[in-house]
């Protein structure tokens, strides 16, 4: 292989990979901007924003608000809990840490449908409000991700930082606030992002436990898909569902880069 080819290949691979990710978005974007696009035509015959308008009419705005609130709440709950669990698992003082770790990761194994069906009745009997039940179950579903990320982060965290901070006069609380959290910010951001995605993209739990009172984007997308001739609206809603996580991903990546830059 020549030197030129060797330099070219990784670039080519990257390009193909990018295409693989971007490709599904192309028809979505086209559909979102098409007022008429019938079968044999390669491109839409009429361009327009009627799909977007229909989506807005169907309550896309409140769907976005609902999804943001759900994702945000799940992230806010699952991240600190995952950090605590991750810290405990990373320390050597936890008895039966393998068992505890397995229990914390178990929501990945049990299908969400089963969990939702099982808990629905229980939550109804306990008179837990529907939205709170959804947040609760999704927080549990997000815990494996946040715990895993934070366990790895704490595993790589140098305990010496804490000792050093203590001898410099920092109380245990100050150590957490002024040293641990800032040093672990990239990991916390990544964990929060994953937890947010769990809430943002959930359908099953929201439908079963939320009972339709909690309107989120995935619910709107699903109901729009169930009817025929709604392609433009579905495309607009789907794009709406992709953009916020994409923006968040870029932010998280930036935080991670900053973290790597400051670390030796």
């Amino acid at each position: 292989m020549t030197l030129g080819a060797r330099r070219l290949l990784p670039g080519l691979a990257l390009l193909l990979l990018a295409a693989w990710f971007v490709l599904p978005l192309v028809p979505l974007a086209l559909w979102g901007l098409a007022d008429r696009w019938s079968a044999p035509a390669v491109l839409p015959q009429e361009w327009g924003l009627s799909g977007v308008a229909e989506a807005a009419e169907q309550g896309a705005g409140s769907g976005v608000v609902g999804s943001l609130a759900l994702g945000g709440l799940v992230a806010m709950l699952a991240t600190p809990l995952g950090a605590l669990a991750g810290r405990a698992l990373a320390s050597r003082h936890l008895p039966a840490s393998v068992l505890v770790g397995a229990v914390l990761l178990s929501p990945l194994v049990v299908p969400p449908f089963v969990v939702a069906m099982g808990f629905d009745v229980l939550l109804l009997r306990l008179a837990v409000p529907a939205w709170a039940g959804v947040v609760l179950l999704l927080t549990v579903a997000a815990l494996p991700y946040t715990t895993y990320v934070m366990r790895t982060a704490y595993g790589g965290y140098d305990q010496g930082f804490d000792d050093e901070a203590r001898t410099l006069g920092a109380s245990p609380r100050q150590v957490v606030r002024l040293v641990q959290v800032p040093v672990l910010t990239p990991a916390l951001a990544a964990a929060a992002f994953l937890a947010f995605l769990v809430g943002w993209s959930d359908y099953v739990v929201t439908v079963l436990v939320g009972g339709g009172r909690l309107v989120t984007l995935p619910l709107l997308v699903a109901s729009a898909t169930s009817a025929v001739g709604n392609e433009a609206q579905v495309a607009a809603l789907s794009l709406l569902a992709v953009l916020p996580p994409l923006a968040l991903l870029l932010i998280v990546a930036a935080i991670g880069r900053r973290g790597r830059k400051v670390r030796a």
């Binding site: 203590r166 001898t167 410099l168 006069g169 920092a170 400051v262």
Partner: peptide, 18 residues
């Protein structure tokens, strides 16, 4: 430890990276 008025320098510098 934080109230003892002793500061420690370790073998690793342990400068806070942030």
């Amino acid at each position: 430890a934080e109230n003892r008025g002793m500061a420690m320098v370790f073998q690793r510098p342990l400068l806070f990276p942030h």
